[in-house]
Design a protein around this nucleic acid. Structure first.
Lengths: 342, 342
DNA sequence: TTGAAAGCGATACCAG
DNA sequence: CTGGTATCGCTTTCAA
């Protein structure tokens, strides 16, 4: 691979001049520019981005850390960041497969080694304290899908509590009175908040959800199926089912129908996330839209903004107090309908 | 951000020594090692990967170029590469949003600038010739999902023709005689090959497919719905439908059922790809498994292998004549069954 | 308009 | 075991 020196030598100019034409410096004579350009083409020259980054102390990489790519939800998240990257002529450095605090920590560290100072991180395992400490060292670190009060202005998150409430209000408005819910067995924040919002709103309306009608399972199709079987075998009846996410909801519907219940005529089912799947299922799933791609874009832009600010005003603490909270939007499709039992 | 010099100064040693402890060189005295390590922690030191790459001429990045991340198929591809990257302690540089030959070319070039010499590329727009030329310059370039004879050993691809044949054999074995097919309107290679394999096998068995029973549409749910309407309105009957991909197949099923046809009792439907979706649909979709994740892993490993080989034997042309062809596997689920018409 | 030279932050060879 | 130093490929003053 030819270097700037090779070009300089062959073209009979100094490296400084070559550098200038590479960077489009207007004060190179047109003639030399042409000459140099030709040699670059001949030798198939490509500037070395590493060397460049080293001297300019600038980095055109934006890092993304997510648990997995196969989950469409995270794929959308990555996609949102990618769009911003493209728009800003930056590139995506992606890290997945996070399972432990240690692996999350390591992923962040790898990004730091590359001096990638803009990063969008989806962390569920690291503690608030560690994240706060990290964010002090990394000005361009933005958390997505998580809210930490002390660094609120660097978090882009969804109001899961409100999402649960919205679901409850929707079912309540449809006249439902007997509720069940399927949640995720994983004790990350989201499932708890969604369920809490849901039950809280029910309580406010004078209803309650039987504890035996709350099941926990793997947050996927099969988990939804199994949880639903448990629900059914409890012997208790319900006309409305609030499920942690769309995949589980689709699994639930499938099991309900296998057991002779029609959705939504007999039982209304509402999911969460509004992934592609929910539009493909039959009946089409009513759910809460989680605008993850938009949020990811926002997060990426925010991260870029933060690094710029840092440069502009080194030690001047400019505490952005803006909050980046999103509220899920109800998407009414076919799996919920008026309750005809009461 | 502190540098190796800072550490050396504070610890009272030379940069060489610091470098040694960073790289775990066994011949540093335990005591100095401890001292240096402490300072590194104190100053929150992180080695600069760019500087490192510059001097070692080694790069721990593996590049992936795909059209999009939102498409689960490509997400799986990226995921496969990521797994290999992780396993080799490398990192993923991802580029998406390819729409034209120019953008594909640019994406590859950005990877080159970063001296990322291992790359897995999914290119549909660049010509064979350009790709061949490129692969001569980039030893670690591997093409996925595309086959170019001259650089066959650097292509990891699926035999779409054979896939079509397998589908045909499956339907034939189920006693079907009247066929229809939905293909993609986009004139990339795959749809043509799949359909050709399908019809060729039918012909071999003494059957044919009515040209009016071949529809083309957008390769998504809606495209499948629309194409199916066209098929139905032709007035011609058929008992088996071969669809370009799973999304279209699910759209097709939906339309068929809306029109009073039962799947598979009245009409058998078979898709292609075996994406997650096909397991969620009802009836569960019979389809051809496209082991894209496995293929992506293979491609990534191959790319790494190629760069190593290059290093081992510079000019010695070691033409790997191995071929990396995959054949799709029939996944029989619920959407195809014995024809009861004949 | 161009060139010489001083780094950027690390590695690795050669001495000692 | 440790230190000095040339070097990687490029950008960026400072002079000419």
């Amino acid at each position: 691979m030819s270097t700037i020196k090779d070009i300089a030598r062959v073209a009979g100019v100094s490296v400084a001049t070559v550098s200038r034409v590479v960077n489009n410096d207007p004060k190179v004579k047109e003639k030399t520019k042409l000459k140099v350009t030709k040699v670059m083409l001949d030798l198939n020259y490509t500037p070395n981005a590493n060397a460049r980054a080293l001297v300019t102390q600038k980095n055109t990489t934006i890092g993304v850390i997510i648990p997995s790519l196969t989950d469409p939800f995270f794929a959308s998240l990555a996609n949102g960041v990618e769009q911003v990257a493209r728009q800003q002529s930056m590139q995506l450095l992606l890290s997945t497969g996070l399972v432990s605090a240690e692996s999350e920590r390591q992923a962040i560290n790898l990004l730091r080694e590359r001096r990638c100072d803009v990063m969008v991180v989806h962390s569920k395992k690291l503690t608030d304290d560690e994240l706060i400490a990290l964010s002090e060292q990394i000005p361009g670190l933005v958390l997505i899908d998580r809210h930490i009060e002390q660094i609120s202005h660097r978090c882009v998150w969804l109001d899961n509590l409100e999402g649960g409430k919205i679901a409850a209000r929707h079912l309540l408005a449809l006249n439902h009175q007997k509720f069940a819910s399927i949640s995720s067995k994983y004790q990350i924040e989201d499932p708890g908040l969604r369920l809490e919002g849901f039950t809280r709103e029910l309580t406010g309306a004078g209803f309650a959800i039987d504890k035996e009608l709350i099941e926990y399972g793997e947050p996927n199709l099969q988990g939804g199926e199994i949880a639903t079987q448990h629900l059914l075998s409890s012997g208790k009846t319900f006309s409305a089912l609030f499920v942690y996410n769309d995949a589980m909801a689709i699994g639930a519907i499938s099991t309900l129908e296998d057991n002779g219940y029609r959705v939504p005529q007999d039982i209304s089912v509402i999911g969460f996330d509004d992934v592609l799947l929910s539009r493909y299922s039959r009946p089409k799933l009513s759910t809460l839209n989680y605008p993850i791609e938009e949020m990811a874009q926002q997060a990426a832009n925010l991260a870029i903004e933060l690094t710029k600010e840092r440069k502009a005003a080194k030690d001047e603490y400019k505490v952005e107090s803006k909050t980046h909270k999103y509220v899920p939007r109800l998407v009414k499709r076919e799996s919920t309908s008026l309750c005809n039992e009461n």
